[in-house]
Computed example of a mutant assay.
Amino acid sequence: MRCVVLGAGAIGGVLGARLAQAGHDVHVVDRRAHVDAIRAHGLRVRSPDGEDVVRLAATTDFAEPDWAGVDAVVLCVKSQDTAAALAELARHADPQTPILCAQNGVANEDAALRLFANVYGVLVACPSAYLEPGLVRAYSSPVTGVLDVGRYPHGRDTFAVQVSRVLSGAGYASEARADITAYKYGKLVTNLGNAVEALCGPSARGGNLDRLAMDEARTVLFSAGIHAEFAPVSALVQVRPVFGERRPGGSSWQSLYRRTGGIETDYLNGEIVRLGRLHGVPTPVNAALQYAANRLVASGGEPGSVSELDLLRAVVDGRGAAR
């Protein structure tokens, strides 16, 4: 398969490397520092099994890949960067090109469908990290992660089955699912704790705020008539240290650590807030997390620098709920 990976960070970098190692033709598009490092030294992929150096075609220029021969585009940018990436992609790729949205959140597929006819959702459960140019870390072994795929908004077609087989051959657990959207809503619920981890540190993950945000989301989804399925990823993903180090934090934590100037909270907790407003369901927990995360990004604060107790007080006081 010939594919272009847009965004070669934690998810896209590891995926591009694994596909290339499995014999597929991969071209990655990313920012200058990362691309320069990949071109100079290859993409270094560290895992519990050691380090691989994978040579990949890498560019910052959307015009550089040979789009005429591309079988699929894998969209791995953060949700807040999707609109800009799709707008640039539409200038070069044929509108029939299959787009695989290997991203958190549920808004990316709909955005892609405005510009491309063949859109596929990908449920992503791949513990990985991108903290410095030219190096990505994959923390699960022997399976690199879970990447289930299905046509958007629903359907299990021939291409989804083909992609699932390709991903399975590249070291992932993958199923072609007829209702990928339901599974992505399930993943959205579990991703609400990303903001808690980014704000209060990894030790707060799974705590009171996390549970309250998820309970609130389930109420909202029920009121909206949205069905969420939860894929059994824990039996497949085996998280282990990489070079003696545990994974420092998830995708939102990494955005704060790298000072990217953005965070995906508006498309995770903010999606629950949006649905709550549409259906008349209060969402004080997710609204407070969304507000606090955006404030921390604006101030350039460090991940884990916010008190969990202060956030709980903000929920009780209703701060952020009107945002």
Score class of each variant (00 low, 15 high):
residue 77 V to E: 05
residue 79 S to G: 07
residue 79 S to L: 07
residue 80 Q to S: 07
residue 81 D to Y: 01
residue 83 A to W: 02
residue 84 A to I: 04
residue 89 L to C: 09
residue 92 H to N: 08
residue 94 D to A: 09
residue 94 D to T: 04
residue 95 P to R: 15
residue 95 P to T: 08
residue 95 P to D: 06
residue 102 A to W: 04
residue 103 Q to R: 10
residue 104 N to D: 04
residue 104 N to W: 01
residue 108 N to H: 08
residue 109 E to M: 12
residue 109 E to S: 08
residue 111 A to F: 03
residue 116 F to D: 11
residue 116 F to R: 12
residue 119 V to F: 02
residue 122 V to A: 12
residue 123 L to N: 07
residue 125 A to Y: 11
residue 128 S to H: 03
residue 128 S to A: 15
residue 130 Y to Q: 14
residue 134 G to T: 14
residue 137 R to V: 15
residue 140 S to I: 14
residue 143 V to Q: 14
residue 144 T to M: 13
residue 153 P to M: 07
residue 153 P to N: 12
residue 159 F to N: 13
residue 161 V to F: 01
residue 165 R to N: 12
residue 167 L to W: 09
residue 168 S to H: 06
residue 169 G to H: 07
residue 172 Y to D: 03
residue 176 A to N: 01
residue 177 R to F: 00
residue 178 A to T: 14
residue 179 D to Q: 10
residue 185 Y to R: 05
residue 187 K to M: 11
residue 188 L to E: 13
residue 188 L to H: 11
residue 192 L to S: 11
residue 193 G to Y: 04
residue 194 N to Y: 06
residue 195 A to M: 06
residue 201 G to S: 02
residue 202 P to D: 02
residue 204 A to R: 07
residue 205 R to P: 01
residue 207 G to I: 02
residue 209 L to E: 06
residue 210 D to S: 09
residue 220 V to M: 08
residue 221 L to R: 04
residue 223 S to V: 13
